[in-house]
């Protein structure tokens, strides 16, 4: 499974990177590399069951006061 994942990432790099190098789009290449590394890290972590911080929880914590306020104003429950 892990091997398959690596193969997929290898495929993506082989498809995209040479073109970027040839056209000398270094900025794009850097962004590409960073995003791909991020994606790889996230998917590897999920595959290996490494716990990750969940952005949803962050959003929920951040907006909880406001969500409660909305409920209060509209007098729901």
């Amino acid at each position: 499974m892990l091997l398959l994942l690596l193969l997929v990432f290898g495929g993506i790099i082989a498809l995209e990177a040479p073109g970027l190098v040839r056209k000398q789009m270094w900025g794009e290449l850097a962004a590409f590399g960073f995003l791909l590394a991020l994606g790889m890290a996230l998917s590897m972590a999920q595959m290996l069951d490494i716990p990750l911080p969940n952005p949803t929880k962050g959003i929920e914590a951040l907006f909880k006061p406001m969500a409660d306020a909305i409920d209060k104003v509209l007098m729901v429950k």
Binding site: I12, G27, E28, G39, Q46, L52, P55
Partner: peptide
């Protein structure tokens, strides 16, 4: 501040897939 968005599509897609499962 890049010129083209096409190179970003695939890697961002990987991130989105990972996020969608994680969220």
């Amino acid at each position: 501040g890049l010129m083209y968005y096409r190179p970003l599509v695939t890697p961002l897609g990987v991130v989105i897939i990972a996020l969608s499962v994680l969220l």
